[in-house]
Design a protein around this nucleic acid. Structure first.
Lengths: 333, 333
DNA sequence: TTGAAAGCGCTAACAC
DNA sequence: GTGTTAGCGCTTTCAA
């Protein structure tokens, strides 16, 4: 029953016109007489013709597909960004090829090459670490790339993100105002610029403004997982630390639960402010105060920026900083 | 600086062989003399040649790309499945085009057509609702499709899922064993077969086995969101219901928190068993008992099945049922 | 407003 | 083992 693939040529023949004309009506080219257009459309309908995007891509050198590289789609933060990207992409008729990188350098490079082989028209990169090899690969690609949710610390790439330094500064200042003297900084790898450069700078600046000496022992470098948050709890509980900025909601929830299991009262005895404000933050008790990161918008704006880059439009600013807000809940006084 | 696209033809010329030979070495065809292969590989290296997957796709009629349709990537359940799919897909050198459907019928059909236009070699469909129009579209597509995480209730499509009827039966039996007489069934739309057919059948069967009459008033049809769980709480709290099966973790957490805000003690006064056992289940307090749905594996197995279908291999069973386990935590006695 | 024809970069017979 | 030669299905000059 399955009819053979029907091509533009079949339509042309049936309609008594040339393929060029069919191509024109399919692509909405105005230079077609209404009568002809009508006739062609009828044949297209009758034959149930569907243009082959691959052939189109080869001929036009445009795939209407973009690549999205992210660490892990099961992390809420990245999934939210991806959703924003996809919505805007669909709006502009682009499709998305998703690649999980697991923050592995080799895999990232491999994945990027794969994307380029598929002739993607652009790529959106999410992830915190970016090493020179990858940066090189991005640069030599003659395909626009935009960073979403993070910035290349060397600012060599277009990007969309929030001002993490300022957000952490504000968080820690709040903790200081609440009379905490020993405030921990807890994050994933400091090798990632977002942690080791931007966030910790905000932390240090807030401390300095409050005339509190920076103490290396209050910096905890871990992973972004719930389980590591739990593990950290006993260490924290047995110290004289009374508050913490935690760079990730899952990690913060782990710490919160671990602390509570140890009978530490939050926020009475320990205050927590985390980052990203994913749905998790309001699902736990006490609810967690968090930096409201506009995740969906970050993805959406990144995708919009990418469309401009792909069209070679003039963009006033290649590094876009989106506003965040502070969401104070029950984990702070 | 950006070198022009270099093609298989350039390599052939430089290496002093024909394109066919280059094509052979690129594709690992054994019929090439080692010397020739070496020479060609050197040129490929030197020229930094990368095959164009689009041209390849057009010539070979294979895109090495598969389409993935899911309701919303920000839902943990689907993100986990997607991760399983992607890992196996990469293993077999396939890429994934992601499409969010929002469970909207028109969008699904549109998205499917788009995927087919892109000549995907297969598609994995996730989602609970499937109407006739979509089923038709799937059938007329000469591209293999597999359902992941749900089954077409008419079993017309290959699928990978768990036995939801049995899982809910087991959950409700546990609730019955714990001496609950009034047990609610709370789920998303009953129009979705997974709820309105499989899960509720398990619920009814467990009730029947325990000689408890089925009562329509104990069935709550809502959405799968946290907020709706919260809203439902007061209604539940003011009834004489003492336990509930909840079809989704987020929804269950909403109910749990709502109940606790109303001073209902879980599990002492109210027991909850939910479904899927996403990471959320163990992050809230009390931790939620849940049906352990092998989400990652479901995606992985579905993708594996799809590779077989795409290769036209013989498959013994088109409808695969994966085992689940019951994870009892603190929301049940 | 329309058509002819030359590719886009590659695979896959088929011949040698 | 290797080369020749058609296409794959479409877009895009260039002429008419």
């Amino acid at each position: 029953m399955a009819k053979q693939t029907i091509t533009i040529y079949d339509v042309a023949r049936e309609a008594g016109v040339s393929m060029a004309t069919v191509s024109r009506v399919v692509n909405g080219n105005p230079n077609v007489k209404p009568d002809t257009r009508k006739k062609v459309n009828e044949v297209i309908e009758r034959l149930d013709y569907h243009p082959n995007a691959v052939a189109r891509g080869l001929a036009s050198k445009k795939s209407t597909t973009i690549g999205v590289i992210l660490p892990d789609i099961t992390e809420m933060f990245f999934a939210s960004l991806a959703r924003g990207i996809d919505d805007i992409a669909s709006m502009y008729k682009y499709n998305i090829i998703l690649e999980n990188s697991d923050e592995d350098v080799d895999k990232k490079v491999e994945v990027l090459e794969n994307l380029l082989a598929k002739q993607v028209d652009g790529v959106i990169y999410m992830g915190n670490a970016i090493d020179d090899r990858l940066r090189e690969a991005f640069k030599s690609a003659r395909t626009p790339v935009v960073f979403a949710g993070s910035v290349d610390d060397k600012h060599s790439m277009p990007s969309v993100s929030i001002d993490n330094e300022a957000a952490v500064y504000e968080s820690v200042r709040k903790l200081v105002e609440n009379k905490n003297k020993k405030i921990a900084f807890i994050s994933g790898p400091l090798s990632e610029p977002v942690n080791g450069k931007f966030r910790i700078e905000g932390y240090k600046r807030a401390l300095a403004d409050a005339k509190i000496d920076f103490n290396d022992n209050l910096v905890f470098e871990t992973s972004n997982t719930y389980d590591d948050g739990i593990k950290l709890a006993s260490q924290i509980a047995s110290s004289d630390i009374t508050a913490a900025f935690v760079a990730n909601d899952s990690l913060a929830v782990g710490l919160l639960n671990g602390l509570q299991d140890l009978d530490v009262k939050v926020p009475e005895e320990f205050e927590i402010i985390s980052s990203n404000n994913t749905s998790l933050a309001k699902m736990v008790r006490p609810q967690i105060s968090s930096i409201g990161h506009p995740m969906y918008d970050t993805g959406a704006v990144a995708m919009r920026l990418l469309t401009k880059l792909m069209n070679k439009e003039e963009v006033e600013e290649r590094n876009i900083t989106l506003p965040y807000d502070m969401v104070f809940r029950q984990s702070t006084k």
